[in-house]
Design a binder for these strands. Structure first.
Lengths: 349, 349
DNA sequence: GTGATTTATGCAAACGTTTGCATAAATGTG
DNA sequence: CACATTTATGCAAACGTTTGCATAAATCAC
């Protein structure tokens, strides 16, 4: 390839390297004004059909596209939705957590379909107070989806007061001001506890960190039922990092497995770990201890025994998040969306 | 809230709504020129320490941050890395595929740490020829990471000729021109076949779509060994969507399970499905049929029997991708990075 | 105290679009 | 054919930064 040498003397338009970097360049080539090119590429009807097509063809031929930064700056719109994953209460690995990842996948589908681009950002709120304001105020995004409230409920509430186009995945609290989409975690907790008790358990344990609101609500729901049905329940706090969780569960189960006969795991991931630790200890599931998880991840049906769990419809969740956000972008003050969780009975309870 | 009415006559600075939207606004308040504010916020040493701190404090107080679009436009740098997932050979659900999702999580970690933002884009190349050019030419990103070659090898090669800051996750072919990071898939295939044969299998099957280069290489590696060790191997093509895969495997196994005694699954996900189908059919693993997967996803150790598989170090992969990309952003013409896969023996072979 | 150097700031020109307004050309009306 | 209307284009002013260059102020050397 001796493009460079050809470049100088050449008159062959095919041979010279594309000098068309701006709309003005293209305008020169097309013999029109930049404004016309802009309108033509935007497909506006104000420009003559003939010229429009000619310009579009020219653009295609030269592989030209208008600079997005300039466009966004001028139009004060970015066409980008921020997706932010706060790692508040536990910074390890959470972004790799199956549930969030699956949700993100569906979000990508939904947003792409609506013509939006996605700016993904992980933040560690404990290290950076202004994580949300900074993202919103950056001028890079038209709206934001927050995946998980983590321990940032207060901060999110605060921001919601002055910023409409934000939707959050998480738990719905009575009277909260930010728009949230999520399963009815408390109901889910009730379903789980009901199932455990129906399967014969009376001494329950809840495995999972109760700091995040989602998990706290699940626990609260389970307590509702346990209390009203005469069962006992104790919360065993774990951390989200898989390695830590395994260790914590292992220790707890080794010492206390005789004291419980039913486990409600705050997530399927925790349930899997629990299942594995019980197997190591030689404790039979569901005979000696019953387990109910939460999420219904795809693998839930592939464990042995297959996991009984509370299903969240992730796809519906993603759809809801995007739908509400788009409406908020139009200025509508949308209500939150609470999705019904569903008990899926398999082999562990 | 009667802000509007207060706004007019009010002199109380606390009461009026923030009028500080631009650097010029802040400059007026601070009694300096916009240029100085810009320099102060950028932390440049050209500006007096005293004024710099004063301006920074002022900015913090008003919650001001410079508009990124304008900044990016002016500086001709975006600080954004594009991450694109092409869904070439199978459009269903691939973005939710555990492996890619885990990789994405680690990428997010690495890029965030280096101060880059991430623009995530899913594309369906079959519907949109120019998926890659369009992304690169959009002016929104400084560089791009392509997750998976899919069936787009040729297109990627083509783009690589004229665009340096691109790194691809995938398979390395002899003499290819684009910079790739990925496991040595062929070697991985060899390890898998060796293990199956060492465990006693002689009639092997490969489960997975052989169109993507990664998978093709895994299959080729397995063939190397099968041929040299006197075992047979046949490829059984599946599609990536889990539902389809299950159906395809189910049909194949029902009819042909007697003809094979070892399965090399192109991915752990496929291996899980296979395991499940075999269980349904009452075929013992590993006694009647042995299985080796590929990836070593976290759940691999949680199935029963735990999955024997070929491990890819995803974190190292993500690190490599980012490292190479950053070097290419500096203008360096980096070589590809081939990571060694590792056999992890568990219960299925 | 004069001139040379350093330091801190201001000025104004980009960056590449989009779009309201003005105008020229084309069409229609009587 | 003169005038009113529609249609297609051009002009130029934003959008909000950053940064090279010029200059004013402060420091220094002698």
């Amino acid at each position: 390839m001796n493009r460079k040498s050809e470049l100088e003397g050449s008159i062959d338009p095919e041979a010279k390297v594309r000098p068309i970097r701006t709309i003005t360049d293209l305008a020169r080539v097309a013999g029109v004004s930049p404004g016309t090119v802009s309108r033509a590429l935007a497909g506006k009807s104000l420009v003559n059909t003939k010229t429009r097509e000619r310009i579009q063809a020219l653009a295609r031929e030269h592989g030209f596209q208008p600079n997005q930064m300039a466009s966004k700056l001028r139009r004060q719109k970015t066409g980008v939705i921020g997706v932010v994953i706060p790692l508040g209460h536990d910074r390890e690995q959470q972004v790799s957590d199956s549930f969030f990842m699956t949700l993100l996948g569906h979000l990508a589908d939904e947003l792409t379909e609506k013509g939006y681009d996605i700016m993904l950002r992980r933040v560690i709120p404990d290290r950076d107070e202004d994580w949300l304001d900074r993202f919103i105020g950056s001028g890079m995004i038209d709206g934001v989806i927050v995946i998980g409230q983590s321990n940032q409920f207060a901060r999110i509430e605060e921001v919601a007061d002055g910023y409409l186009p934000m939707v959050v995945w998480g738990n719905h609290q009575e009277g909260q001001r930010h728009c949230v989409v999520g399963a009815d975690n408390r109901l889910g907790g009730r379903l789980a506890a009901e199932r455990l008790i129906a399967a014969g358990a009376t001494r329950l344990a809840f495995f999972g960190d109760t700091a995040p609101f989602e998990f706290a609500a699940r626990y609260a729901g389970a307590c509702d039922i346990a209390n009203s049905m005469g069962a006992t329940i104790t919360a065993v706090s774990t951390h989200l990092s898989p390695a830590q969780t395994a260790q914590e569960l292992s220790r707890f189960l080794a010492e206390h497995h005789g004291e419980i006969d039913g486990v409600f795991a705050a997530s399927d991931t925790i349930a899997f770990t629990c299942l594995q630790e019980l197997r190591k200890l030689g404790i039979a599931v569901p005979d000696q201890i019953k387990i109910v998880g939460f999420d219904d991840l795809p693998i839930a049906e592939q464990t042995l025994p297959a996991l009984t769990t509370i299903r969240q419809d992730i796809q519906a969740g993603a759809h809801g998040l995007v739908d509400l956000l788009l409406r908020r972008l139009q200025g509508e003050e949308t209500e939150s969306l609470v999705l019904p969780p569903k008990l899926v009975v398999r082999g562990t309870a």
